[in-house]
Design a protein around this nucleic acid. Structure first.
Lengths: 107, 107
DNA sequence: TACAAGTATCTAAATATTAGAATATTTGAA
DNA sequence: TTCAAATATTCTAATATTTAGATACTTGTA
């Protein structure tokens, strides 16, 4: 069903640590690419690429001011979505902690 | 940040059409693998594989009765999450319809 | 015009995901 | 036991995603 394909694209866009980190940064308002780059401490091209993914899925909007591009989340309901996700994690804290434990074995 | 990595895994699990279709089937209660297979009209191994993904992310639980395995969503709040996602799509119906139009060029 | 700053895109290599076919496992019944 | 039904897992080829580095684009300023 095409609707499921579409929704899947949306969730896939959220399915990346860097992109979630970007969205967290945007919770308090718009940020320039540069600000995001510094906050996340990753390559410039990487930030741009992840932003492009969010842009293509209409999750994020941009605004140009001089040579600087500011990004913001298009629909605040995105944050509501992330909050519901957080609640789901909290409901299953034990599993979450296990998961985090195994994840943190890497760094 | 490991928490973002963990959340990303969760969203990634939702980022597949078949898996979303499975979750939709489970909205009204548990379903056997066979029932899911018939409803979705896909290979048995494929259903099992997608169920395994959902199981590994603790999104879904299973119960065995004879040779039949019944699956159910672990936390009803998952549906709330899907509903918020649906609302976000509705908020941007125009884009959504464009997206669906390009998607449906394939089938 | 030339240059610099800020972003975006392209490329290539590494890695991950996907789906179907084949095979394995589990369970109940003969 | 042996068999059949229901699921799960393994294997593999095709495809997609990720990342860094190099390059291109855009805008303001000298």
């Amino acid at each position: 069903m095409p609707l499921h394909r579409f929704k899947a694209e949306f969730f896939k866009a959220l399915g990346h640590p860097t992109r979630l980190a970007i969205l967290d940064q945007l919770r308090t308002g718009e940020r320039s690419v540069q600000e995001l780059q510094q906050a996340l401490a990753i390559e410039q091209s990487n930030v741009s690429q992840q932003l492009a993914v969010l842009r293509n899925k209409n999750i994020v909007d941009s605004r140009k001011e001089g040579t600087t591009v500011y990004y913001r989340v298009r629909d605040p309901m995105i944050f509501q979505l992330l909050d519901v996700a957080r609640q789901i994690f909290n409901n299953h804290l034990i599993d979450t902690q296990e998961m985090l434990a195994t994840l943190s074995e890497e760094t």
